[in-house]
Amino acid sequence: MKKTFRATLFYVLCTLIVVLWMVPFVVAFFTAFKTMDEIFMLRNFWSPPKTWTFENFKIAWIEGRMARYFINTAIVTAVSVAGTLLLSSLSAYALAWYEFKLRTTILMIFVSGMLIPFQMLLIPVYRFSVVTGLYDTLIGVILFHVAFQLGFCTFFLRNFMVTIPSSLFDAARIDGAGAFRIYSKIIMPLVKPAVAALSILEFTWIWNDYLWSLILLQSDAKKTVTIGLTTLQGQWISSWNVIAAGALLAATVPVIVFLIFQRYFIQGLTLGSIKG
């Protein structure tokens, strides 16, 4: 009896929370399928559309130049994630397995760098990009993302690496394996789960980045999805249905990736437990 009561309580409360949490999604979903007339005559966001229309998605896709922007975002995200993971695994390896004078200092630098208010970087980073010709190139945005995420990734991977028993490392060393060999053949295979978790986290963050693409890119041909969405908002300010359609389009990829790889995402957040 008590058991059924507890189960009922669980389902009731969870359903309540989920319903509450889904309201904003439902609002966006309904709005995206409404006609302009319905939006402004009724001016409500909670009722389902009387007539469903796909027109808004078409406008958002074409006017928002989403096709082009999706490709750009995909390139930026893929290369940035790969670059960050590669470089941070190198630095994490050094910080986890070697004793040297500046170890703590360097670790501290990486850790505090990942928590700083990013506005500190805006102006100098912009100017640096322009001077070096990296401005308005995808590679410029990628380099920045890689560098900016290094702090977090290094910290994350190092924390994972120190949990590996050091006997493995020592044994390989005694066998005469070189440092890079130990890194690539022994340590990296062991941190695979951490790398998986990290890559999903990084994927979501970089895909969703807005400010840095705004500051570092200018050509329409190079912009990313989030910029496309804000430009769409600027153009269709009063056409809430089109913007909603654009927002849903922009959200598809990260949401799908999240749903598929959720396990890694959660592991990542838990292991890293710092960024959001």
């Binding site: 705004l214 050509s219 329409d220």
Partner: peptide
């Protein structure tokens, strides 16, 4: 001719950054 379009309010902010940079982009 390449036209880059920006949302109005973003443009107002970005313009100065473009103008002030040591190398021009527009």
């Amino acid at each position: 001719v390449v036209v880059n379009t920006f949302a109005h309010e973003d443009f107002k902010v970005l313009l100065r950054t473009w103008l002030a940079s040591p190398k021009g982009t527009a």
